[in-house]
Computed example of a mutant assay.
Amino acid sequence: MADDEPLTRRNVAPPKPVTPAYLERVALDYLERYSASVAMLRAVLLRRVKTRCRLRREEPGAFADLVEATVARAVAAGLVDDSRFAQARLASLRRRGASSRIVRAKLAAKGVPRDLVTDALGNEATTAEEDGVPIEEEAAHAYAKRRRLGPWRRPDLRGPSRDRDIAAMARAGFSYSLASRIVDAETEE
Protein backbone atom coordinates (compact mmCIF):
# COMPACT_ATOMS: atom_id res chain seq x y z
CA MET A 1 0.00 0.00 0.00
CA ALA A 2 1.40 3.38 -0.96
CA ASP A 3 1.77 6.15 1.62
CA ASP A 4 -0.63 8.45 -0.21
CA GLU A 5 -3.35 5.80 -0.69
CA PRO A 6 -6.35 6.42 1.61
CA LEU A 7 -7.19 3.77 4.16
CA THR A 8 -10.43 2.07 3.10
CA ARG A 9 -12.27 -1.16 3.88
CA ARG A 10 -10.82 -2.80 0.78
CA ASN A 11 -7.20 -2.52 1.81
CA VAL A 12 -7.67 -3.37 5.52
CA ALA A 13 -7.25 -6.95 6.64
CA PRO A 14 -10.45 -8.56 7.94
CA PRO A 15 -10.67 -8.98 11.70
CA LYS A 16 -9.42 -12.15 13.29
CA PRO A 17 -11.87 -15.06 13.57
CA VAL A 18 -14.18 -15.58 16.53
CA THR A 19 -12.51 -17.88 19.04
CA PRO A 20 -13.25 -18.96 22.60
CA ALA A 21 -10.34 -16.80 23.78
CA TYR A 22 -11.77 -13.76 21.98
CA LEU A 23 -15.21 -14.28 23.52
CA GLU A 24 -13.72 -14.74 26.98
CA ARG A 25 -11.73 -11.52 26.58
CA VAL A 26 -14.87 -9.64 25.50
CA ALA A 27 -16.84 -11.06 28.44
CA LEU A 28 -14.14 -10.18 30.97
CA ASP A 29 -13.73 -6.67 29.58
CA TYR A 30 -17.48 -6.10 29.76
CA LEU A 31 -17.87 -7.55 33.25
CA GLU A 32 -14.93 -5.49 34.48
CA ARG A 33 -16.80 -2.33 33.58
CA TYR A 34 -20.45 -3.22 34.20
CA SER A 35 -22.61 -5.29 36.47
CA ALA A 36 -24.65 -7.54 34.22
CA SER A 37 -27.28 -10.23 34.14
CA VAL A 38 -26.79 -13.45 32.20
CA ALA A 39 -29.06 -12.15 29.43
CA MET A 40 -27.10 -8.89 29.17
CA LEU A 41 -23.77 -10.73 28.87
CA ARG A 42 -25.23 -13.06 26.24
CA ALA A 43 -26.56 -10.07 24.25
CA VAL A 44 -23.17 -8.33 24.33
CA LEU A 45 -21.36 -11.44 23.15
CA LEU A 46 -23.88 -12.10 20.39
CA ARG A 47 -23.64 -8.50 19.21
CA ARG A 48 -19.85 -8.69 19.05
CA VAL A 49 -20.02 -12.02 17.19
CA LYS A 50 -22.51 -10.61 14.67
CA THR A 51 -20.30 -7.59 14.04
CA ARG A 52 -17.17 -9.66 13.55
CA CYS A 53 -18.99 -12.19 11.38
CA ARG A 54 -20.45 -9.44 9.20
CA LEU A 55 -16.95 -8.06 8.59
CA ARG A 56 -15.61 -11.55 7.85
CA ARG A 57 -18.68 -12.54 5.80
CA GLU A 58 -19.39 -15.51 8.07
CA GLU A 59 -22.61 -16.86 9.54
CA PRO A 60 -23.02 -15.74 13.19
CA GLY A 61 -25.28 -18.68 14.05
CA ALA A 62 -22.29 -20.99 13.84
CA PHE A 63 -20.87 -19.41 17.00
CA ALA A 64 -23.96 -19.70 19.22
CA ASP A 65 -22.49 -22.68 21.08
CA LEU A 66 -19.28 -20.74 21.79
CA VAL A 67 -21.30 -17.85 23.17
CA GLU A 68 -23.33 -20.16 25.43
CA ALA A 69 -20.16 -21.89 26.65
CA THR A 70 -18.59 -18.53 27.49
CA VAL A 71 -21.70 -17.42 29.38
CA ALA A 72 -21.78 -20.75 31.25
CA ARG A 73 -18.11 -20.34 32.27
CA ALA A 74 -18.81 -16.81 33.54
CA VAL A 75 -21.77 -18.08 35.59
CA ALA A 76 -19.76 -21.02 36.95
CA ALA A 77 -16.92 -18.68 37.94
CA GLY A 78 -19.37 -16.44 39.79
CA LEU A 79 -18.72 -13.45 37.54
CA VAL A 80 -22.40 -13.26 36.59
CA ASP A 81 -25.19 -13.90 39.07
CA ASP A 82 -28.75 -12.84 38.26
CA SER A 83 -29.80 -12.92 41.90
CA ARG A 84 -26.95 -10.65 43.00
CA PHE A 85 -27.60 -8.37 40.02
CA ALA A 86 -31.31 -8.15 40.88
CA GLN A 87 -30.57 -7.25 44.51
CA ALA A 88 -28.07 -4.54 43.56
CA ARG A 89 -30.23 -3.08 40.82
CA LEU A 90 -33.26 -3.12 43.11
CA ALA A 91 -31.38 -1.14 45.76
CA SER A 92 -30.21 1.36 43.15
CA LEU A 93 -33.67 1.82 41.68
CA ARG A 94 -35.23 2.25 45.11
CA ARG A 95 -32.74 4.98 45.99
CA ARG A 96 -33.84 6.81 42.86
CA GLY A 97 -37.49 6.44 43.83
CA ALA A 98 -38.68 3.55 41.66
CA SER A 99 -41.98 1.88 42.51
CA SER A 100 -42.34 -1.90 42.60
CA ARG A 101 -44.01 -1.83 39.18
CA ILE A 102 -41.12 0.06 37.64
CA VAL A 103 -38.59 -2.21 39.38
CA ARG A 104 -40.26 -5.29 37.91
CA ALA A 105 -40.32 -3.77 34.43
CA LYS A 106 -36.71 -2.59 34.49
CA LEU A 107 -35.37 -5.89 35.80
CA ALA A 108 -37.40 -7.79 33.21
CA ALA A 109 -35.91 -5.54 30.52
CA LYS A 110 -32.44 -6.51 31.76
CA GLY A 111 -33.33 -10.18 31.32
CA VAL A 112 -33.66 -11.14 34.99
CA PRO A 113 -36.07 -14.07 35.39
CA ARG A 114 -39.42 -13.23 36.97
CA ASP A 115 -38.92 -15.59 39.92
CA LEU A 116 -35.64 -13.89 40.87
CA VAL A 117 -37.34 -10.48 40.72
CA THR A 118 -40.09 -11.76 42.98
CA ASP A 119 -37.50 -13.18 45.39
CA ALA A 120 -35.57 -9.90 45.47
CA LEU A 121 -38.73 -7.90 46.17
CA GLY A 122 -39.75 -10.45 48.83
CA ASN A 123 -36.35 -10.18 50.56
CA GLU A 124 -36.63 -6.42 50.47
CA ALA A 125 -40.13 -6.55 51.97
CA THR A 126 -38.99 -8.90 54.73
CA THR A 127 -36.07 -6.65 55.63
CA ALA A 128 -38.26 -3.56 55.58
CA GLU A 129 -40.90 -5.25 57.71
CA GLU A 130 -38.26 -6.08 60.33
CA ASP A 131 -37.01 -2.49 60.26
CA GLY A 132 -40.54 -1.04 60.19
CA VAL A 133 -39.83 1.00 57.04
CA PRO A 134 -42.58 1.41 54.39
CA ILE A 135 -40.70 0.74 51.14
CA GLU A 136 -43.15 2.21 48.64
CA GLU A 137 -43.55 5.34 50.71
CA GLU A 138 -39.78 5.87 50.93
CA ALA A 139 -39.50 5.35 47.18
CA ALA A 140 -42.35 7.79 46.56
CA HIS A 141 -40.62 10.39 48.74
CA ALA A 142 -37.36 9.89 46.86
CA TYR A 143 -39.13 10.17 43.50
CA ALA A 144 -41.03 13.32 44.49
CA LYS A 145 -37.88 14.92 45.88
CA ARG A 146 -35.85 14.06 42.79
CA ARG A 147 -38.54 15.42 40.47
CA ARG A 148 -39.38 18.35 42.78
CA LEU A 149 -43.01 17.42 43.15
CA GLY A 150 -45.39 18.35 45.95
CA PRO A 151 -43.59 19.77 49.00
CA TRP A 152 -40.35 20.11 47.01
CA ARG A 153 -41.98 22.40 44.43
CA ARG A 154 -41.90 26.19 44.75
CA PRO A 155 -44.75 27.23 47.09
CA ASP A 156 -46.40 29.55 44.55
CA LEU A 157 -46.62 26.69 41.99
CA ARG A 158 -47.79 23.95 44.34
CA GLY A 159 -51.55 24.46 44.06
CA PRO A 160 -51.80 24.77 40.27
CA SER A 161 -49.44 21.80 39.78
CA ARG A 162 -51.11 19.37 42.20
CA ASP A 163 -52.91 17.27 39.57
CA ARG A 164 -49.85 17.24 37.33
CA ASP A 165 -47.67 16.05 40.23
CA ILE A 166 -50.08 13.25 41.13
CA ALA A 167 -50.23 12.20 37.48
CA ALA A 168 -46.43 12.09 37.30
CA MET A 169 -46.31 9.86 40.36
CA ALA A 170 -49.04 7.62 38.96
CA ARG A 171 -47.05 7.21 35.73
CA ALA A 172 -44.09 6.25 37.89
CA GLY A 173 -46.17 3.36 39.25
CA PHE A 174 -47.36 4.71 42.60
CA SER A 175 -50.96 4.34 43.74
CA TYR A 176 -53.27 7.35 43.73
CA SER A 177 -53.62 7.35 47.51
CA LEU A 178 -49.86 7.30 48.07
CA ALA A 179 -49.22 9.91 45.38
CA SER A 180 -51.82 12.30 46.75
CA ARG A 181 -50.54 11.80 50.31
CA ILE A 182 -46.98 12.66 49.22
CA VAL A 183 -47.99 15.61 47.02
CA ASP A 184 -50.34 17.04 49.66
CA ALA A 185 -47.82 16.75 52.51
CA GLU A 186 -47.32 20.08 54.24
CA THR A 187 -43.54 20.18 54.35
CA GLU A 188 -40.57 18.19 53.17
CA GLU A 189 -40.19 15.14 55.38
Rank of each mutant, 00 (worst) to 15 (best):
I135N: 04
L66F: 11
L46R: 06
G159D: 01
R47Y: 12
A86Y: 08
V49E: 11
V75C: 08
Y34S: 07
G111C: 08
R33T: 12
R54F: 14
L55M: 12
C53T: 08
I166W: 10
E5Y: 12
R95C: 01
L157S: 13
D4M: 11
D3R: 12
L116R: 14
N11P: 01
I166A: 13
F85Q: 03
I102Q: 02
E130R: 15
V183I: 15
D165I: 05
R73P: 07
D156S: 11
A170T: 06
P113C: 06
T118D: 15
K106L: 14
P151C: 07
W152F: 12
G61N: 04
T19L: 08
R162S: 04
L45E: 00
V38F: 03
T51P: 00
D156M: 05
A98R: 10
V49S: 14
I182H: 09
K50Q: 13
G150H: 04
E24S: 14
R171V: 01
V49L: 12
G132T: 06
G159R: 05
S175H: 06
V26C: 00
A21Y: 02
L157D: 14
G97C: 05
L79A: 04
E188C: 05
R84P: 06
L93T: 05
P155M: 12
I102M: 03
V44D: 00
R101P: 01
R84K: 11
L46Q: 03
L41M: 09
E124Q: 15
A168Q: 14
R9V: 15
V26M: 01
A36P: 09
P113G: 02
T187G: 09
L41E: 00
R52V: 09
R52T: 09
S180R: 15
F63M: 02
L149Y: 10
L23W: 07
D115R: 09
S100E: 15
A185V: 00
A98F: 14
A62D: 05
L55A: 14
A170F: 00
L157H: 12
P6Q: 08
L121R: 09
F174T: 04
I102W: 02
V183N: 06
F174E: 04
A140D: 03
D163T: 11
I166F: 08
A109K: 00
A185W: 07
R10V: 09
L178Q: 10
E24L: 11
A179P: 03
Y34E: 11
K145G: 08
P151E: 07
G97V: 01
S161V: 08
V49A: 11
P113I: 05
S35I: 01
A167R: 14
D131K: 13
Q87I: 13
L7H: 08
E58N: 04
W152G: 03
G159C: 03
K106R: 15
I135D: 03
E130W: 02
A21T: 10
R95T: 02
L45P: 07
V67E: 00
A69L: 08
Y34A: 08
V38H: 07
E136L: 10
E186Y: 11
G122N: 04
L149M: 13
R148D: 02
A167D: 15
S99P: 03
Y34K: 12
R94I: 05
M1Q: 10
R148G: 02
A76K: 13
R56C: 11
R56Q: 14
M1C: 09
A109M: 02
E129F: 10
R84A: 15
P14I: 10
